[in-house]
Amino acid sequence: MEQSNKTYAVEADQLVKAFGKERAVDGISLKVPKGIVYGFLGPNGAGKTTMIRMLATLLKPTEGHAKVMGYDLAKEADDVRQSISLTGQFASVDEELSGRENLIFIGRLVGFTRKEAKSRADELLAAFNLQDAAKRQVKKYSGGMRRRIDIAASIVTSPELLFLDEPTTGLDPRSRNEVWDIVRALVKNGTTVFLTTQYLEEADQLADLIGVIDRGVLIAEGTSAELKSSIGVRSLIIEFEDEQDLSKAESIFEGMFTQPPEVDRDHLSISVTMKDQSKAAKAIGELANQQIAVKDFSMQQPSLDDVFLTITGKPAQEEGGEANGE
């Protein structure tokens, strides 16, 4: 493979997609190194799906250009398709057919002989724990099984780059963890994964590099740690045994932190935000020095809303149903 000496799976240069007057993607440039998970993080309607659809050759960019696995998106679409797979947000297999039939169908389409397609289908069904449901119509699958067969269908050919559009939206925690395991296994074996998500936790768990998108614009990019430290707002939450301790702690923290502490008298808890994590230890230590009993404490990760609040000064924009189908 002569392509493998090139470093980037995706190189996008000022990509724009306009639908009429609305610019769903408004000039995004990004570079995704091979062999990593790139997490595209943003709220509904931010332009994540549009971006993925452009990179997967489904939509023609209005402006700008991009290379996917080294091939020009506009001029070498066939070569791009040969190296990628897309698992869309909605049905990406035929719901009327059984899981096995779907995999054989895709296998035949990508060039396996009938025999090869069948053995590949059985191999994938076993790997994705779907043997028992192999002969059932996909429309009768549960949400988690559904996602697994979607992904299985995408890796029939072992793509070099896999696009996953919101792979865990609507899944229960167990199914979500299964999908995460699959993504980790894929990357371990050399596949590059480009996924979109609305959840900071998911990006945090999976992605080596995170791009934050809002209203068609890439507003931040970096590793999870970089993003968090740039956002800074981690919260320390402390619970107390009684009101007296709570009030004492409040006055101590007022002097320690730039932001005034938030006090919740009903739950006897106090919450302070900080940029520097080491301050949390100092704060707890100070309480101990003053003989204030701490019932419980926890550090809270910044949420997607915190990310947006910090970067844009506004909460994540929820545009709801209309923008969903973009």
């Binding site: 040969q82 296998g107 035949r108 389409l109 990508v110 060039g111 396996f112 090869e116 590949r120 191999e123 994938l124 076993a126 790997a127 994705f128 724990n129 890796i155 050919t157 072992s158 299964e178 395991d181 699959i182 296994a185 894929l186 371990k188 074996n189 050399g190 596949t191």
Partner: peptide, 25 residues
Amino acid sequence: MENNSLEKSITLEKRPSKASPMNAA
């Protein structure tokens, strides 16, 4: 999830050559 079979299924060395138009249809 049986991770062994999962990883084995992912590390597929041989990729099929493109299906002919007739076969795809």
